[in-house]
Write a protein that binds this DNA or RNA. Structure first.
Lengths: 353, 353
DNA sequence: GTTTGGCACTCAAATAGGAAGAGTGCTAAC
DNA sequence: GTTAGCACTCTTCCTATTTGAGTGCCAAAC
């Protein structure tokens, strides 16, 4: 978890100047000088006075200057303080919330819902939208189907509570007839319904241990098959939208940086790991620049929030963009999108029936 | 289809010089001047003579010069002539072919096979590998399953001959009980097995028309449901690997160009359309630069070949890279990869059984 | 008539030298 | 504590100027 910046003793005025400086920098993208800051702060201070204050802020590591004759730019530490204590997030416009809600309701398929969420995030922020797929292991069992293929192979089709269809080809240790497979599926469909896949694995394991002799060899081998099905590899995934948006930001224009960023997107693994860390967090979670500890994201910030069905965290959604982003509006957007997605999923998956 | 360049009357010598020029340019990436060319052609000609010949080639539109004091660079027309008549493709190394074959055989899942193909293409060429998924419509029916959801919705799971599992949520016009759905699936599984999806749509349509009164209302509505299932949207797809490789090429380093290229990759639609054009072509198909007619690929070439199962073209695979690519080795690689993939798919999907 | 050396010419890329402008830090005065 | 003043430091933007690669053309050589 990200440690909140420990309270720094800053005069009211210094805080205000830092806030204005960061806001201005986020808006313009240029280092902010004392003259501009003095004009914008509305405090009737001369540039010279502002310089004194800013010099203190620099000493504290909240701002730096790219070179002697440039203005100041916030550091990660500065952004952190800004976000934690200076930022005034305004709630999302009602009309926009409404629009989001309608977009979500236009989708039937839960998978489409996730894509829509990602698309919305990227198009509204002009940055990258990301939504992780629900972790299979956390999902509840809904239906299973065995389809015999040639050479003793079996195509297993597993439907989880989120209506997602997973499939995999396995090679059971002993051959089954088509009828046997059918029977096995029926058996499992009755007995496993509604259980979570993780629990299921445990349960099957126990059952195989304990009732070793009491149950028929056939059932035993079916259970073994079922168990092998649940051992999914780590093929979890996420939806990423608007990658190319990042090419518009001058701070990421460097070829090497951009390249490593795009490679990170293709690689998925590390990024997914990072996102997984956010799943248990309450509310909006933010990694600023190097805070993520992931080198390709060095110049980027990640704003996330988990989405949930029936209060179980299903996955994470968020926005990736340059450190210099409009947190003021991104944070509420991510917040609301996650809430609406959760709500929509709840409606689709847990209908009043 | 790409029109082969009509035979141009070129002296032996001019052809040879063009060939050397292009080879050299592909190798070095720098415009080739008369001095270098004279040295490399092995013809014992003076630069001045070479200049005369090259001037002719320029007049014919086979080469241009970026500016007065630079050497010459091949044009699309030049590349075309080079590939069609000057290029001597050497067969792939035996060892490499062997390695490819082993990589393919390590995969069970057909879908993984396609990914592997794409990965191999991109990693061996340091460019982008692309493999289209088999066109659903062309595939044969294997199995169908109806799973009742809430609110009268039905999750349809369709397995095609390539063992791919397609799913979709539909809302039938009349409600079905669980047992009815089971029965319907059984019926369809028996009657539709092995038929192609396109044919199937036609057949179902006909059946619904003709035997309007003879069949029971229930069967009729099942058929209607089946038909609606087959009306897949145009969600065809492809696997793309190694996008970031393109960032290494100086000729694509321009930000705008790169951006539009990556957008094209995200958009998929137009690129897919282009790839579809290649599916019926015999052997390796090449689009050089603007030949593709797709603006983002202006500076790129596309080398493709279709892959097939039982002599039915299933999909297309290929490589996307800068126009200035090493055709000499890319062409045989794409050729062999397609053949091996076809072969591997045949083995997996059409086992001797 | 093909080939070649010679030569003037063109243009991109690299280098160097200011000049302008923004912003700082420090000091001394208010 | 605040401010004006000023010297100083850098970046950015011009503008020559040079260098070098390569061309095109012509007249001579083969």
């Amino acid at each position: 978890m990200i440690s909140r910046s420990q309270p720094i003793e800053l005069t009211e005025r210094a805080q205000h100047l830092l806030k204005v400086l960061i806001e201005r920098y986020i808006e313009e993208g240029q280092p902010v000088g004392s003259r501009t800051l003095a004009r914008n702060a509305g405090l009737n201070l001369s540039p010279a006075t502002v310089r004194n204050v800013i010099a203190d802020l620099e000493e504290m590591g909240l701002v730096t200057s790219p070179h002697t004759s440039a203005g100041r730019v916030p550091t990660v530490k500065g952004y952190r303080l800004f976000i934690d204590s200076l930022l005034s997030v305004k709630p999302l416009e009602q009309a926009l919330t409404q629009k989001l809600w309608e977009d979500f309701n236009a989708q039937e398929d839960p998978q489409e819902l996730l894509k829509t969420a990602s698309r919305l995030l990227s198009s509204l922020t002009h940055m990258v939208g990301v939504v992780t797929l629900p972790k299979r292991q956390q999902l509840a069992f809904r239906h299973i189907e065995f389809l015999p293929l040639s050479q003793g192979q079996v195509l297993v089709i597993l439907v989880t509570e989120d209506r997602e269809v997973h499939n995999r080809i396995i090679r059971p240790s002993r051959p089954f007839t088509s009828a046997q497979l059918q029977q096995a599926a029926n058996y499992l469909n009755v007995h496993l319904k509604g259980k979570r896949l993780t629990e299921l694995r445990m349960a099957l394991f126990d059952e195989l241990q304990q009732t070793g002799e009491q149950i028929s060899a056939e059932i035993k081998s079916v259970l073994e098959m079922a168990k092998s099905v649940l051992e999914f590899g780590p093929e979890e995934d996420f939806v990423l939208t608007g990658r190319t948006n990042l090419m518009d930001f001058s701070e990421l224009a460097d070829h090497e940086r951009l390249r490593s960023l795009f490679e990170a997107f293709e690689e998925k693994r590390n990024l997914l790991h990072l996102l997984d860390q956010c799943i248990e967090a309450e509310g909006v979670q933010i990694f600023i620049g190097e805070e993520s500890g992931y080198q390709p994201l060095e110049q980027c910030s990640l704003v996330t929030r988990s989405y949930a069905v029936e209060n179980r965290a299903f996955g994470v959604l968020g926005v990736i963009g340059p450190t210099r982003m409009h947190y003021e509006s991104v944070i509420p957007l991510v917040d609301v999108t996650a809430k609406l997605l959760s709500h929509a999923l709840n409606q689709k998956l847990m209908p009043p029936s």
